[in-house]
């Protein structure tokens, strides 16, 4: 029982990270109908920017909460630039091209970003000292002590706050309305005087910033990153987006949580070696039998 609760806590933490990345997939898919294959690598860049900022601020001796806030903002800002540029260079010229073109372009972009970071930052793994340590302990009398670290609390709370802000942005503001209009019918939205290009750009910026937050959490949580983390994390987050129903924002978060939980429970109870197989299998099973996910809209074939 205690072990189960511990896994639950770990799964929710991991799920928060996946959920934040998944939002980027789901938003881009919703608005331009493509799988942004490079999104996982945007997350990886976010993690690197966060790591670099942590090192710089770590030398200044500023208080921890200030550091966290500064790093958060810096990571979001710089990573958003990457998201924006990738869209402008690799996706925007392809609107109206043949079906698989954006996906191939995204694949190319993903290869570029990975190797670019490898060249610029080196191929070795980058370890970082834990910044937030300690935690709360439960069930001290039993043989298995459940630990909820402050870091886990921080990750989950931050995710909830960001999700709150973000839901407000999408449902209550003009920007959100423009975005939802673009999802429905891009041509009509443009005819109504909304700058569709800008709306799409903003979508990429938001998606990338959230991915960078996930990147920062990843650095803090695992304490080690390399240029390749975006591949696996990206696929798992994509699975999360599909599981929740691609195009649906609450779905992305829900899917993220589920994937986080599936992965930790699989690793905890079934097999640690095959934990990535769990994610891939879920992906395949969901896409085949359940392609609309939990909260997605059915996709009626237009003839």
């Amino acid at each position: 029982m205690e072990y189960f609760i511990q896994q639950l806590v770990n799964g929710i933490t991991l799920g928060s990270i996946y959920g934040l990345i998944a939002i980027g997939y789901t938003m881009v898919y919703g608005i331009i109908g493509m799988i942004n294959f490079a999104h996982g690598d945007i997350f990886m860049i976010g993690a690197f920017v966060a790591l670099i900022s942590f090192i710089i601020f770590g030398l200044t001796g500023v208080a921890l909460p200030v550091i966290l806030l500064l790093v958060l903002l810096i990571a979001m800002l710089f990573t958003a630039c990457y998201g924006w540029t990738v869209e402008k260079l690799a996706y925007k010229p392809l609107r109206g091209s043949f079906r698989l073109a954006p996906l191939i372009s995204a694949l190319g972009m993903s290869i570029v970003l990975q190797n670019y970071v490898q060249v610029a930052q080196g191929a070795r793994v980058k370890p970082m000292q834990p910044l937030i340590s300690g935690g709360l302990e439960f069930f001290k009398n039993s043989e298995f002590v459940v630990t909820v670290s402050y870091l886990q609390i921080f990750i989950v709370v931050l995710t909830v706050i960001l999700m709150g802000i973000f839901t407000y942005l999408i449902t209550k503001t003009d920007l959100g309305r423009a975005q939802r209009a673009c999802e429905q019918d891009r041509t009509m939205t443009a005819l109504l005087g909304i700058n569709v290009d800008r709306t799409i750009s903003i979508t990429f910026i938001i998606g990338s910033s959230l991915a960078s937050v996930a990147g920062m959490m990843f650095v803090l949580y695992y304490g080690v990153i390399d240029f390749y983390i975006g591949f696996l994390a990206g696929i798992k987050a994509f699975t999360a987006a599909v599981l929740g129903g691609i195009g649906s924002l609450p779905g992305a978060m829900l899917g993220g949580l589920l994937i986080g939980l599936i992965e930790t429970f699989w690793a905890g109870y079934v097999s640690l070696e095959y934990k990535d197989v769990a994610a891939f299998s879920v992906l395949i099973v969901v896409l085949i039998f359940f392609p609309t996910g939990f909260l997605g809209k059915p996709d009626i074939e237009k003839v």
Partner: peptide, 12 residues
Amino acid sequence: IAFGGAMVLIMV
């Protein structure tokens, strides 16, 4: 990098 870049350029 050149591989990936070429894929993007060709698609564009």
